[in-house]
Simulated assay, not measured.
Amino acid sequence: MEYRLLGRSGAAVSSLALGTMTFGRETDEAGSHAQLDEYVSAGGNLVDTADVYSGTESESIIGRWLAARGAAARDDLVIATKGRFPTHGDPNALGLSRKHLTQALDASLRRLQTETIDLYQVHAWDALTPLEETVRTLDDAARAGKIRYWGLSNYTAWQLTKAHDLATTRGWLAPVTLQPQYNLLVRGIEAEIVAAVQDAGMGLLPWSPLAGGWLTGKYSRDEPPAGASRLGEDPERGMEAYAKRSAQERTWRVIDAVRSVADSVGATPAQVALAWLLGRPAVTSVILGARTLEQLRGSLAVVDVVLSDEQVRALDDASDPGFDDYPYGPAGENQRSRRIDGGR
């Protein structure tokens, strides 16, 4: 297992994180604990959850696992969770206000059965709460010893930059990570968000690295999803989601490229997709999600997969998001370039 620094902090985390959104929903407690054991035995140390996963049950399952294994096991891990969305119906039980964040954080600490959360992430932007209120609340939480670091999730580039710059100019603890959706089929963050992350010295923690199963190679043009897949088990929503992505020629171009590279390196399509993502700029740790122990083991085996420069270029080309129009692409680059030979 490779280890990388958590943004501009000095904390080291494994390049593969264990995502736990399936805990308590698609994976029962025994299966969830088995995943945690497998992940830790493979050298992983970053466990990511959120208060809304499985109606708070994901955090509780992790908390019981931590309690059973003792303080030494807890000290070896970097526990990450999130707050922002409602877990009950009170009108103040959502958003990034001081009231809600403080209560959400305290509730997460109780469920996780820990005194400190290593990485506390705000789950999404809140347009109604002043940013100063949110960032100051997180700084206060760090000073109180409730969190060690904080990060962002699902923020745009301008939101990220505004939050980071506010923290640094006020002398408050600044965010160290951003958790966005990022994979071979979803590369929109490369337009501006990756550059903003790098400029702030933050790290990326990509979620949905396999695009909801599309990059595992389980879907095909001619066979609609069925059975043991997220799309197949919910026929109505599954077919709608399948039809939308299936209609895009780029989807099948990417899948064909992933399968081709997988055949040439003797790996699974999922492992190839993960290996590509691990090599992207600013990526600190890729969040793995699995319903079964076998799925997790397959993903963890990506540590043995090495892609050549040629294979990476093939995947890049097939998945090119097409940022060609101004202010991106050649036209935008020409406008932003600064030459010293008299050119514009």
Rank of each mutant, 00 (worst) to 15 (best):
V286W: 06
I117R: 04
Q271I: 05
E190N: 12
K146A: 10
D325M: 07
A228M: 10
T216Y: 11
L315G: 02
A163S: 15
A71D: 13
D90K: 06
A17I: 02
A270I: 00
A67K: 13
S308L: 07
L210V: 13
A267K: 01
P86I: 00
A228N: 15
R344E: 14
S54M: 04
D256L: 10
Y182R: 06
G201P: 12
S299M: 12
L5P: 08
P330M: 10
L315K: 02
I189D: 12
L131Q: 07
E57K: 14
H88V: 00
S97H: 06
T49A: 05
V312C: 07
G70H: 10
L288T: 00
L173K: 11
G188P: 03
V258P: 05
T137D: 07
V78K: 00
A247R: 11
W172T: 00
R297A: 01
G238D: 14
S32T: 00
I189T: 09
D118S: 10
T216W: 13
M239Q: 14
R170F: 09
G322S: 06
T137Q: 08
G217Q: 11
G232L: 13
L173H: 12
V306A: 14
P206S: 09
L36P: 07
V312D: 05
V265C: 11
A167E: 10
E233I: 10
S337F: 03
A243I: 03
E310A: 13
A142N: 01
V47M: 02
N45Q: 06
D304G: 04
D140M: 05
E240N: 09
R259S: 13
D118G: 13
T161L: 15
M21R: 05
G95V: 02
R98C: 02
R84G: 08
S97T: 06
G201I: 05
D325Y: 07
I287K: 06
D320C: 03
V122S: 03
T168S: 13
Y3K: 12
A273S: 13
S108A: 12
D263Y: 00
N45F: 01
D341N: 15
V286G: 02
I255T: 01
E133R: 02
L184K: 10
P321K: 05
W252A: 04
M1I: 01
T137G: 08
A195E: 15
G238N: 11
E59H: 02
V302Y: 00
T102R: 04
E192R: 04
G203Q: 12
W150F: 13
V272A: 01
L277A: 08
Y328S: 12
Y120W: 11
L128T: 12
D48I: 00
A195K: 11
A93Y: 08
Q295W: 08
M202G: 13
D165A: 12
S41T: 08
F85R: 11
Q159V: 00
G232Q: 13
S108N: 06
D37S: 05
A196D: 12
N334I: 08
V303G: 00
P330L: 14
